[in-house]
Simulated assay, not measured.
Amino acid sequence: MEIKNVMIAGAGVLGSQIAWQVAFSGFNVVVYDAFEKGIKAGKDFHNNFARLFEEKGMATKKQIEETFSRLTYTTNLEEAVRNADLVSESIPEVEEIKKSFYSELSKIAPDKTIFTTNSSTMLPSMFAEYTGRPEKFLALHFANPVWEANIGEVMMHEKTDKKYFDIVLKFASDIGMIPIPIYKEQPGYVLNSLLVPLLKAARTLLFRGISDPYSIDKTWMISTGAKIGPFGIIDMVGMDTVYNIALRNGKINNDEESLKMAEYCKKNYIDKGKKGIKTGEGFYKYPNPAYQNPEFLSANKE
């Protein structure tokens, strides 16, 4: 099976990146979002990516024009999936929303279509029965930003047909990713199995009043040589995603501190419109966050 036409479900921070990368790599892409404001945000992201690619010499004007020519947008799910060989889902990290989405998608997608989820926190087996094609359903998980942290984690569940696992591994390679095969379901894949404990530890240090975001990020960046600290990463992921994860973990594990942490994120950041890069402010202000200032890591400097 050859992948030519791809539907991206969700035009948020990561969904828009995936759509751009797939279109840039030569595939026809339909970007679907349930809301017009989501489509508008996705188009704004793509205009920003075009400027970024040109400014950094990552693409010529012709390549950018060709990328835009391969991108279309719609709020009509049936229209979006009509010719799709593969779907990449990046809708909100809320279990019921995803179940509803796959239930609806299963009724209108062509038989050929492979479904993939980019969920960072939920396992494919949680939704397999709702897809109507468990053998053609698996995870294809991207890091942020897609073109720099270019890994594509491909994870099976027990009912995934190996044939489609191999097809998605090849697709990941074809769009410029380094394929990371994951043969058994693992919460957090490889990347988030390493990353989530870091972000949780950072949030805990802040929530308990141990230290402040800048100092925590400086500690990590100086000690490891990383280009970005945990709170900068949270801004990329999006505060609402972090909130949903903390809330879900709190409810599932009856973890009172996770629930309080979720409420802390909501009260101090989300309710104030500070959701991260996508709103222009989170722990840092964008487009020029303090951690990118050469003096950020200097002694006695912010």
Rank of each mutant, 00 (worst) to 15 (best):
K4I: 10
V6R: 04
M7Y: 10
I8K: 11
G10E: 01
G12E: 07
V13A: 09
A19S: 05
F27E: 05
V30E: 02
K37W: 08
G38K: 04
D44A: 15
F45A: 03
N47Y: 14
F49L: 03
F49S: 03
K56E: 11
G57S: 11
K62V: 08
E65V: 06
S69C: 13
L71K: 01
L71C: 11
T72H: 02
T74P: 13
L77K: 08
E79H: 08
A84Q: 01
L86V: 05
S90Q: 14
I91D: 00
S106P: 12
K107T: 04
P110K: 06
T116S: 07
T117S: 15
N118Q: 12
S119V: 06
T121I: 10
M122H: 13
M122Y: 14
L123M: 15
M126T: 12
Y130L: 13
G132L: 06
E135Y: 15
L138H: 03
A139D: 11
H141A: 02
A143P: 03
N144G: 10
N144H: 04
N144M: 06
V146R: 04
A149C: 14
G152S: 08
M155W: 01
M155I: 09
M156P: 00
H157W: 07
E158P: 09
K159F: 09
D166E: 15
I167H: 03
V168H: 01
A172H: 01
I175K: 01
G176D: 08
P179C: 03
I182C: 10
P187R: 15
N192I: 06
N192G: 02
N192M: 09
S193V: 07
L195I: 01
L199T: 00
A201E: 11
A201F: 07
L205Y: 09
G209E: 04
Y214R: 09
I216A: 05
M221F: 08
K227S: 12
K227E: 06
G229V: 00
D235P: 02
M236Y: 14
V237T: 08
M239K: 14
V242P: 00
N244V: 03
N244Q: 12
A246F: 05
I252K: 15
N254M: 14
E257M: 13
S258G: 03
L259V: 00
E263A: 11
E263S: 06
Y264S: 10
K266H: 02
K272N: 05
K272I: 06
G273D: 04
K274M: 11
K278E: 02
T279D: 01
T279P: 07
G280I: 01
F296S: 00
K301Q: 10
